[in-house]
Computed example of a mutant assay.
Amino acid sequence: MTAPLPPEMTGPSAWYGPDMLAREQEWILPLSPAHVAEVEQAARAALAQGIDIARIGKADFPLPTLGPVLAEALEELLTGRGFVLFRGLPVDDWPIELSAAAFVGIGRHLGNPKSQNGKGHILGHVRDLGLASNDPNVRIYQTRERQTFHTDSCDVVGLLCLKAAKSGGHSALVSSMTIYNEIHRRRPDLLPHLLRPVATDRRGEVSPGQKPFFEIPVFSVHDGLISVIYQRQYINSAQRFEDAPRLSPETVEALDLFDALADDPALNFTMVLRPGDLQFVHNHTILHDRTGFEDWEEDTKKRHLLRLWLAPESARALPPAYAQRYGSVTPGERGGIILPETRLHAPLTPI
């Protein structure tokens, strides 16, 4: 007997892009002058005390009025629509060190920062480094190419926009719960192929004893919830390994439908991130994308975002298979990329 498919997902995490775009007043939260003042005060105090930016803790960063707002935002991230945008940090007037400290301090009110690569960067720099994604050891955020819809290896990903591109480079979101529902309705015969493990390339960041790929289903059902992990380019590039399970024609068809639905403007929507915007996204229920972009010639004007990978202690339970990628499934501890040589730090320049 074939096991019944998990039912469609209901609730606020299963949304459609055009409707969400029409309700932007619900998810764009302007920072008040009082919020900005207390963030700046906390950031300057932490730096004056000589606290390493990578080790700024929640207790080091008191936010008496913004803190409760962030707590509400975290609940919305984890159990609601799955994303929020704060607007109004004056990053144009701040040195990079102050912006970085402010971002990490705000992030610590949402979760524990995790390493985003084998170098131990808890503060990532999203900038075109002149690389190309056809190099299997390059991650797409280091290029100016479109990223395509994907998840990151953490519970919550945060971005702080410092500089916008000359054109393009916009942020796009789509509900992976809505994608699941649409496949359930249109092609339920393909869903089982997305509920089985699939090989995904680690892109060269491999710890001793690990395979160069992990095997986790696109859709994982656990504790009554569906969680998603997905990066199609890395699924495709994992096929370069002889011991990676081959993709069946049915699995390829299921992945193609997944991509087509993610790319459908009836499901997704695009937002323009301005300097000073902070976007936070729940990876388990949302996929994010970035459009390709044309950058400025002047180095000081080039598109530049800071990124955090966060592990909230109140995050959902995840299936054991996620430990292949997250190292652990314990909320607050899981996620990120840790190699034997990894030492956590917060670089202030893209390296």
Rank of each mutant, 00 (worst) to 15 (best):
Val104Gln: 03
Tyr230His: 12
Ala165Ser: 04
Leu273Val: 02
Cys161Phe: 08
Pro347Phe: 03
Leu70Gln: 13
Ala73Glu: 13
Thr330Gln: 09
Leu5Phe: 11
Gln116His: 05
Ser99Ile: 01
Met271Gly: 11
Leu278Thr: 13
Leu194Ala: 08
Ala172Tyr: 10
Leu344Gln: 05
Asp223Gly: 12
Thr285Gln: 10
Pro113Asn: 05
Asn181Met: 12
Ser115Arg: 02
Pro192His: 13
Asn134Arg: 15
Asp135Thr: 10
Leu123Gly: 02
Arg108Asn: 03
Val84Asn: 11
Ser248Arg: 09
Gly130Ala: 14
Gln41Val: 04
Glu75Gly: 15
Leu225Glu: 12
Ala164Asp: 00
Gly11His: 15
Ile229Phe: 05
Lys211Met: 05
Ala22Gly: 07
His288Cys: 13
His35Pro: 02
Gly11Glu: 09
Ala43Trp: 00
Val69Ile: 15
Phe213Gln: 01
Lys119Arg: 06
His304Tyr: 14
Ile122Leu: 04
Pro347Thr: 00
Arg325Ser: 01
Gln147Ile: 15
Ser153Gln: 03
Ile51Arg: 10
Leu47Ala: 02
Trp94Leu: 05
Trp15Ile: 10
Asp60Tyr: 03
Arg127Phe: 08
Ala42Thr: 00
Pro347Met: 04
Ile216Pro: 00
Val156Gly: 02
Gly335Arg: 04
His125Lys: 07
Thr300Leu: 12
Pro62Arg: 05
Trp94Lys: 02
Arg334Lys: 04
Val36Lys: 11
Met1Ser: 13
Arg44Tyr: 02
Arg290Tyr: 00
Pro68Ala: 15
Ala311Tyr: 03
Arg108Tyr: 02
Asp243Tyr: 11
Pro312Arg: 08
Pro320Tyr: 09
Thr2Ile: 13
Leu31Trp: 00
His288Thr: 10
Lys163Asn: 14
Leu287Phe: 14
Trp27His: 14
Gly105Ile: 01
Gln279Ile: 10
Pro217Gly: 07
Pro197Arg: 05
Pro64Asn: 07
Leu348His: 03
Leu273Asn: 13
Pro320Asp: 05
Asp135Tyr: 08
Ala22Asp: 07
Ala165Trp: 00
Arg343Asn: 06
Ser32Val: 10
Leu85Phe: 08
Gly120Lys: 01
Thr178Val: 10
Gly118Thr: 01
Asn236Asp: 15
Val156Asp: 00
Leu348Asn: 04
Trp94Asp: 01
Leu305Ile: 11
Thr251Ile: 11
Asn181Thr: 12
Gly130Phe: 03
Arg55Gln: 07
Arg187Ser: 11
Ala315Met: 07
Ile140Gln: 12
Gly82Asp: 03
Arg274Asp: 12
Pro320His: 08
His304Gly: 09
Ile56Asn: 03
Arg87Phe: 03
Ser167Tyr: 08
Glu76Trp: 10
Val272Met: 13
Val174Leu: 13
Val198Cys: 05
Glu72His: 15
Asp259Ile: 13
Asp92Arg: 08
Pro245Lys: 12
Phe280Gly: 07
Gln231Pro: 02
Phe149Ile: 14
Trp309Cys: 01
Pro6Ser: 12
Pro320Cys: 06
Arg202Trp: 02
Glu294Ala: 15
Tyr234Pro: 04
Asp223Pro: 09
Ile286Leu: 15
Pro249Asn: 12
Phe280Thr: 09
Asp92Trp: 06
Leu31Val: 10
Ala59Leu: 11
Gly11Cys: 13
Leu310Asp: 00
Glu97Met: 03
Gln49Ile: 06
